[in-house]
Design a protein around this nucleic acid. Structure first.
Lengths: 191, 191
DNA sequence: AAAAAAATAGAACAATTGTTCTATAAAATT
DNA sequence: AATTTTATAGAACAATTGTTCTATTTTTTT
């Protein structure tokens, strides 16, 4: 009954690669099997079906993000400095799981009802963390913007869009980009 | 030889709807035909194949965007005010073609080489318009940011991300959102 | 009214899809 | 050593895909 974790995760890795490159619908189980030189049935031995494979990827990576963000969001310290840390962590974690996060955002609408619900829940969780932060910063009279929800969308926009254009093999360093984005966001929201 | 433009555009409209909702790969020619209650061969009567249909959608909508933006970008007047107008137009045009622009960005990677090239070209064109504007604003000592390319990505991020979350039937007005986004961007970039 | 062109439908195509079934090799447990 | 569990492959499945072919109706042109 207990399945070999290592062999399973190998499949997961390949699946993440292909999903990120060609999308959920654009990637067949055969593509995955072929890429790692195994049989189709071998994939089904480890995952019930294609959607379970997708959900496993979520669990493998993005699932834990809200919790990590909350830890920083609820930590002690000066509000603005904490918010800066939150942004940094969010950028770092997203980069760490760049491929998965890409899948997560790109194929948003192409999932089964179950997948859609999970997807939306995680996104909502993250949005709420930011809105909460903004409310706090607002009470310290640090936020210029009126509509905190739009503000949250704008902040998430820069982070998530970054994942689309960032090329790990390009000539810009991660740190350089992080700093520019954080600077852009902080000036965009603060008084 | 000459095909009925009206009947053709009806197909295009339905295709845009379905592509926007279920993606390029997720939408079959049969889906399109069924949605408008025509035969599959009827679709092929108007479009050579699925990719030509996709390209027709581009032409139908997004294709002209860079030209429109350039018109404003190269117009007379005060630099910062002109930039504000550029943002506004970009937001308006994107909203006008929300479905198509969504397709355009979401299925970025799932196209044939030809489609990919066109896609990338348009995106590059738009990016260049912004970088050029920033250079000009920089020469007037109005820009804070060092890396203009990252800045351009950040600005495009807010605009394009807006298309993902904006719900025409929601309770926020377009104008309200436009103003918040423009405000966010201007403070994010300016001294 | 006749001929040509355009618009449509429907059946058929080979290829690909997610999935299942059966069978066998390898490993772990008894 | 015998037995059960896990891991694998390969063939087959019905459904769906993009596409093509043939045929018929409708419209336009002559």
């Amino acid at each position: 009954m207990t399945k070999n974790r290592y062999r399973r995760d190998e499949l997961l890795e390949i699946a993440i690669d292909l999903f990120a490159e060609k999308g959920y619908v654009g990637t067949s189980i055969r593509d995955i099997a072929k890429a790692i030189d195994r049989s189709v049935s071998n994939v089904y031995h480890y995952f019930e079906n294609k959607e379970e494979l997708w959900l496993a990827i979520l669990e493998y990576s993005v699932q834990g993000l809200p919790e990590k963000l909350r830890t920083v969001a609820h930590s002690e310290g000066e509000p603005l400095e904490r918010f800066r840390k939150l942004l940094k962590l969010h950028l770092e974690e997203s980069t760490k799981h760049q491929r998965e996060t890409k899948i997560f955002f790109i194929d948003e609408e192409r999932l089964s009802p179950k997948g859609k619900i999970i997807n939306k829940r995680i996104q909502k969780e993250i949005l709420d963390i930011y809105v909460e932060q903004f409310r706090l910063l607002q009470s310290h009279n640090l936020v210029r913007t009126k509509n905190l929800k739009i503000l949250a969308f704008n902040v998430l926009a820069t982070i998530n869009w970054f994942l689309r254009w960032y090329d790990p093999y390009g000539d810009m360093s991660k740190e350089e980009i992080y700093d520019e984005i954080i600077d852009f966001v902080l000036h965009g929201m603060c008084k």
